[in-house]
Structures are given as structure tokens and as C-alpha cells.
């Protein structure tokens, strides 16, 4: 009968449901991520000779296919705009205060959003020179570019 079953303590089973998607990157983003894993940033040469970073498959103005003329860029760069993150959450790229910035890598004509690890807000300014810092154990993700840090003069 029911009374035969004595529950001493509630049993809790924790499960984690997840489904990993796989992404095929194609010839342009594929080349970008392969090089990033090796600590090299790549841009792509557009029809108007500008170097776009990160590289795009199709021209953002005309939609033309840009081909695959990849151009090495960085590791230096210039901060073009920034905002300070004083209280990072778990989803932020760094666990201490940092700046989200538009950084134009040397050799590129456009800027990309990245974290700038400058320690304190007073250390960041538009036009400051920064250098790419890569993850020591690359994962093939955009976060392999861990952050930009102030260039030591």
C-alpha cells in the first residue's frame, strides 16, 4: 500500500538539455576564423580597394561578391569610439571593468567591435593605440581575439 513507500528525502535529478548547432562558414569567414586561431587577423579587399574588417562575403553597398582576396591586418589598431563597462556580467568578454570599442586594425579601412582591456576608464581615449591580445588556447571563435590592450610605447 501507499504507506509502504517512505520517502526519506526528495530526490533531485539535474539534467541539462542542449543542442549544438554546427555552422559552415564558407570561404571568407572560414579563412578569417582559421587565421584567427593562429593569431592573425584578416580583412578582405573590396572592389573599391578598401580593406573590410572583419571580412564580408558580399559588398555592403552593392551586394557584389567580394571574392577571397584576404589581407593580413593588425596586430596594432586605433580606438575610434568606446563605452565603459563598469560592472561586467557573466556574458561579457572580461570579468573586470573594460571598454567596448570600435577598433580599426592597422591596414584595415573599417573598425570592428571588441573589448579593450585598459584597467580603468581614465586609461581609455578615442585615438588611443591598442594591440590585439589572443587567447592562449584558441577555440576557433571570435573570442579567440580576447581583447585589445593599450600599446606599450
Amino acid at each position: 500500500m501507499c504507506s509502504d513507500f517512505i520517502v526519506s528525502e526528495p530526490r533531485i535529478i539535474e539534467t541539462k538539455l542542449e543542442f549544438p548547432y554546427s555552422r559552415t562558414l564558407g570561404p571568407v569567414m572560414g579563412a578569417f576564423f582559421m587565421a584567427l586561431r593562429d593569431g592573425q587577423l584578416l580583412g578582405i579587399r573590396a572592389k573599391d580597394r578598401r580593406v573590410l574588417a572583419p571580412p564580408l562575403e558580399y559588398d555592403p553597398e552593392t551586394g557584389e561578391s567580394l571574392g577571397t582576396e584576404m589581407v593580413p591586418i593588425g596586430p596594432g589598431g586605433t580606438v575610434e569610439a568606446w563605452t565603459w563597462v563598469d560592472d561586467p556580467t557573466q556574458k561579457h568578454p572580461l570579468d573586470h571593468p573594460f571598454a567596448f570599442a570600435l577598433v580599426k586594425p592597422d591596414g584595415a579601412d573599417t573598425s570592428m567591435v571588441s573589448a579593450v582591456d585598459a584597467g580603468r576608464v581614465e586609461a581609455v581615449h578615442t585615438g588611443m593605440r591598442v594591440t590585439a591580445r589572443y587567447r592562449s588556447e584558441p577555440q576557433g571563435l571570435i573570442t579567440d581575439l580576447e581583447a585589445w590592450e593599450p600599446t606599450k610605447s
Binding site: T24, G26, E57, Y58, S65
Partner: peptide
């Protein structure tokens, strides 16, 4: 499986 192209490239 078209693992030679991105989604964008597939549409294009």
C-alpha cells in the same frame, strides 16, 4: 550537407 558554403553563399 553543403559544408562548402556559408548560409549567405547558399542563398546567393
Amino acid at each position: 550537407r553543403r559544408d562548402d558554403v556559408s548560409i549567405a553563399g547558399l542563398l546567393r
